[in-house]
Design a protein around this nucleic acid. Structure first.
Lengths: 232, 232
DNA sequence: GATTTCCCTTGATTAGAATCAAGTTCCGCC
DNA sequence: GGCGGAACTTGATTCTAATCAAGGGAAATC
């Protein structure tokens, strides 16, 4: 690893509280690598050799079954993926590919597990991270089971709007086909869902979405902090 | 807590490896309680006051949104629930109710977190448990996004069949309305899904299901260890 | 500048699932 | 034995979403 990257990595929540010594042991073992766009980093079913940390760029987690494919999550800086597989020494449940040129930190699974064993503060940080990941999936799962496609989209728009400052406008962070897959619908249906939201003050221009009537949209969406609030 | 229950609790994976001292501290603080059938133990949104451990009986985890309700999981002995909320000191994302008369161990959140801080072995056990919970939800989520209702049912039947010895017959562990909700469908559609599976050798008599043509059923179900295998 | 390609949209159709409405069966209960 | 209720099933209908097919538009390529 380049020494210039050290402070950056150290400042991640996951690595902030650990002992210097443990951090060193991980750093010595880890690889920094830059991948171009659209590179498959891992495939579901493979043994968990590395924990991945996205430093720059963006990674899509996806999965296959019965001849279908779906996006499960997007990982932005600074985020980790497949932590659970690494900790359990179990096969990955998801595949991952870059969707931009990305700088990735790869920590060998063995070294990560050793570090968890040796460093209480690191174990605590891992627990927090894992618990957050768990709750994020539960929220996604609730959303999919309890809401229609239009409702999922409406709430997602409200979330992006809030995250981006809440000034009536937002830009979609991913292309629409990816957003559709994340929301559990086809691109065609995402298009139609946007049309359905027109009467609720939603206008779309490319990746820019304007919310002209927040009250109406919220009445439709019925946002629920136990699904939509990423912080809790 | 009754001292007669101690060895039982101690033998749970979660509590097996921890120090005697830590175990004592948790035991002193915890409550053992027996609840009748159909009692709501927690409601989503409430602060996480206790970690719950099901010792006897059965508990259903469920959630509400947009006027709908869905079952998210069933917890059988010996299983915990809402561990993540307790660790994060965050509101519960799910509600829980007994679906049988149940004996439950309740560990105050504060004491649990203190124990995690003080005992490395316990922290390690918590990490394993959390990682397993995470992967279980990811599997459910993949199943819902990638399979039709009939496929989900077919795979669920194969799972129960395997778990119960694989001798061509299985008994449904829950009533059909609950099973339907777990699988993400209405009771009516579960009924129809069973009918759809008839040509694949599936016959139903009350809670007893017979699989007369495993090959045909598996061809339809396309079971996938990364979704259906609970052990990995 | 014309063409290709990809992404997105729209329309028509089909498939999957929910809802509404009865019926049936099976239990517990009187 | 008869009654009431709950769980489940079936049928008809509606709704939601996927699929199939085609077209439009913007950016990249030649």
């Amino acid at each position: 690893m380049r020494s210039a990257d050290l402070p950056e990595v150290r400042s991640l929540h996951l690595f902030q509280t650990m002992k210097e010594e443990t951090f060193d042991s991980i750093v010595k073992a880890a690889y920094f690598q830059t991948f171009p766009d659209h590179v498959v980093l891992i495939e579901e079913g493979e043994p968990a050799d590395f924990l991945y940390v996205v430093i720059e760029g963006r990674v899509e987690l996806f999965a296959h079954a019965n001849g279908r494919e779906t996006s499960l999550a997007m990982v932005s800086p600074i985020g980790t993926f497949i932590l659970a597989a690494v900790l359990k020494d179990a096969p990955y449940l998801m595949s991952a590919r870059t969707c931009q040129r990305s700088r990735i930190l790869m920590i060998p699974a063995e070294d990560l597990r050793a570090a968890v064993d040796q460093d209480k503060a690191f174990a605590a940080a891992i627990i927090r991270e894992l618990a957050s990941c768990y709750r994020a999936v539960v929220k996604d799962h609730k959303s999919l089971k309890l809401r229609t496609g239009v409702e999922r989209l409406a709430n997602r728009l409200l979330r992006y709007h809030h995250d981006q400052g809440g000034n009536g406008s937002l830009s979609l962070p991913y292309d629409k086909r990816t957003l559709a897959s994340l929301l559990g619908m086809t691109p065609e249906n995402l298009s139609r869902a946007f049309n359905t939201l027109k009467p609720y003050g939603v206008t779309v221009d490319g990746g820019t979405v304007r919310l002209h009537d927040l009250v109406a949209l919220e009445t439709l969406a019925k946002p629920n902090s136990l699904i939509d609030d990423r912080r809790i």
